[in-house]
Nucleic acid binder design. Structure first.
Length: 599
RNA sequence: CGGGACGUGGCUCAGCCUGGUAGAGCACUCGCUUGGGGUGCGAGGGGUCGGCAGUUCGAAUCUGCCCGUCCCGACCA
């Protein structure tokens, strides 16, 4: 049994000046973590205990579908060269050299390593499917670590990898993970949602993120309160209201109009007395194309055209053209590609490349421009616009794609659903996706199928951020005094607070109550510090323990108090009944989180 | 990487503008006191003022460079 008086639990009255979000402040104040450097934290007793509990929940559930491995964090360069990611990972990868000068890196993810094992060990379809996972430290040299444990450079991740014979097998592995993840997050007491996601630089097809709504989050997700549609803004779509087209003027052909000082869309709309929805706006980028097989990287011009009232979603644009990075064009580049200045860029007269990222200009139009008529756009000439512009008739493009971000209030994309989308901030706690053949193919993993033919296993990759479960749990359950965790992941389930250590009878009762809980397997912490009651109460409220038993004045009458942190409610309970009641409450706590999360 | 802020005992901060003894609260140690929501009183210990260089008789304070941390943006399985 743990005694507070013997432990190192450095609680703080004040939050460090660096802390911004609630979870960061409370993790430090409650003595869970201490910062060592930007994005690098030490876990103290409470923090580590909570992390172990989370990892154990994850492990218990993962063991129902897969096998746990333990892989190196210090990795040689070769597998990364084989997958091509030694260069793709760029500055996000921590790199070092050994004494012989050989390149090494710290593992930021383990597709390559798992695939290396699969390649050298798996020979037959009879050995598939396999699901291998690890719960280990990952390293990423984040350009901007922030928000305490939310975005860090060293963190703990459960990641698993599936190897299947075919797509149907992959679907099954994916679904198994989906189901297990829901159990894990539910057991951790999180109110999560599963959303469609962009698969990013990992490649692959289907991709789903598990998110917890919180303002501390860095992702935006769009969801429909009516039908339950939910997607990361990088992926979300919507159904647009029909637009009332403007009447054509003159002969209906594009007409040059002098529009002095109308560089902003609002000015153009006012000038033509039209809605910004009838304007075509241009966002001009330079896109980075990664060189294949040793070729150098190159920057190519890209023009994105959208409705005037829409915004570019750069993630969508990147995946539409297959580029690695985007930056906006500078004035000289605008002159080179458009012969016109910012504010007056337009699609008419451009010669789009046949394929994305060619030597000329890649022209991408947003889907919302297709089928439109009589629009207004820049004339690639200062102080001039054109009207009567019809996409497809008056200009062409390299490709049309969905490259815009949906807005709150737009119609849900689900047919027959009348809901309006809402957009909220969230933190990503898990991500599952179908990798496909990217790693097994490039790294040469092959097995023989039942006909003796060589086939390439299809892979899936599935991650859970252990620290993020802790942060998300704190973000969703805190008040002015501290936070509370569900018993499943709290460092202790119950703290027994002896309110006055000078009273020998109270000490004895407290010891007895705690010992009784301890013997029954309840994770109990006995607060036997020689402190005033107020100090102990404040600490207990701060540190995330879901239940507290006060051993105080009523103890002489054989009664203690059971306080539930989440609700700040207290009940008197005969000492003999405490164990049974605590068990009951823990069970309720579990059921409560279960019910709350039925998604 | 672009923009901004900050760096003074363990923590939160004042002092800097206008150069001359390094301060407060919390925390810590000792004594007394108190004992159901961070008890009160007294006495103590603890800081090369992020680093380096410069200006000056003299730098926490002025100047330059560097380092670190945080915030916004970019970036991000």
């Amino acid at each position: 049994m743990h005694r507070w008086s013997k432990l190192f639990i450095p609680t703080l009255r004040e939050a460090p000046a660096d802390a911004e979000v609630a979870s960061h402040k409370y993790l430090v104040r409650a003595g869970y973590i201490r910062q060592l450097a930007a994005g690098i934290y030490s876990f103290l007793f409470f923090g580590h205990r909570s992390m172990l509990k989370i990892a154990n929940v994850v492990r218990e559930e993962m063991d129902t579908i897969g096998q746990e491995f333990f892989l190196p964090a210090l990795l040689p360069r070769e597998p990364w060269d084989q997958s091509g990611r030694w260069t793709v990972m760029g500055d996000n990868m921590f790199r070092l050299k050994d004494r012989k000068g050989a390149d090494l890196c710290l593992g930021m993810t383990h597709e390559e390593i798992m695939t290396t094992i699969a390649r050298s060990e798996l020979r037959s379809y009879k050995q598939l499917p396999q699901i291998w996972y690890q719960i280990q430290t990952k390293f990423r040299d984040e350009p901007r670590p922030k928000s305490g444990l939310l975005r860090v450079r060293q963190f703990t991740m459960k990641d698993s990898y599936s190897f299947d014979i075919d797509k149907a097998g992959l679907d099954k592995s994916f679904d198994l993970h989906d189901a297990v993840y829901r159990k894990i997050f539910t057991r951790c007491g999180l109110k999560f949602v599963a959303v469609e996601a962009d698969s990013g630089s990992m490649g692959g097809s289907q991709s789903q993120e598990f998110m917890v709504y919180t303002d501390a989050g860095e992702d935006l997700i769009a969801s429909c309160p009516v039908c339950g549609y939910a997607a990361n803004l990088e992926k979300a779509i919507s159904t647009l209201e029909p637009v009332t087209e403007m009447e054509a003027t003159g002969d209906g052909k594009p007409e040059l109009v002098s529009t002095p000082n109308c560089a902003a869309i609002a000015d153009v709309a006012a000038f033509f007395k039209m809605s910004p929805a009838s304007d075509i706006k241009c966002v001009a980028y330079m896109a980075l194309e990664r060189g294949q097989k040793g070729e150098p990287d190159s920057w190519q011009g890209v023009a994105a055209f959208l409705r005037g009232d829409h915004q570019v979603n750069e993630t969508k644009l990147l995946s539409a053209i297959g580029a690695a990075e985007l930056r906006t064009m500078v004035a000289e580049e605008l002159e080179k590609y458009f012969k016109g200045p910012a504010g007056y860029l337009g699609p008419v007269g451009l010669t789009p490349d046949a394929k994305p990222l060619g030597a000329g200009l890649t022209v991408v139009v947003d889907k919302a421009l297709e089928g439109r008529e009589n629009m207004v756009c820049g004339a690639n000439q200062k102080d001039y616009h054109q009207r009567n512009v019809v996409p497809g008739r008056d200009f062409s493009w390299t490709l049309a794609a969905d490259i815009r971000s949906v807005n709150e209030g737009e119609n849900c994309p689900t047919s027959s659903c009348a809901g309006k989308l809402v957009v909220g901030k969230a933190v990503e706690i898990g991500h599952i996706f179908k990798l496909g053949y990217k790693y097994s193919e490039s790294m040469g993993a092959r097995v023989l199928d039942e006909n003796g033919k060589e086939i390439t296993p299809i892979m899936g990759s599935y991650g859970i951020g252990i620290e993020r479960i802790l942060t998300a749990a704190i973000e969703q359950s805190n008040d002015a005094n501290g936070f509370w965790l569900p018993a499943s992941i709290a460092p202790f389930t119950v703290v027994v607070t002896i309110t006055n250590m000078t009273d020998a009878a109270l000490r004895e009762t407290g010891e007895k109550v705690a010992a009784q809980l301890d013997a029954a397997g309840i994770d109990v912490l006995l607060d036997d510090r020689d402190e005033r009651a107020g100090v102990k109460f404040k600490d207990a409220d701060l540190v995330g323990i879901p239940f507290r038993i006060n051993v105080g004045k009523k103890a002489a009458a054989g009664v203690v108090e059971l306080v539930t942190r989440a609700t700040a409610t207290s009940v008197d309970v005969p000492i003999a009944d405490t164990l049974a009641l605590v068990k009951e409450r823990v069970q309720e706590d579990y059921l409560l989180t279960n019910l709350a999360d039925a998604e």
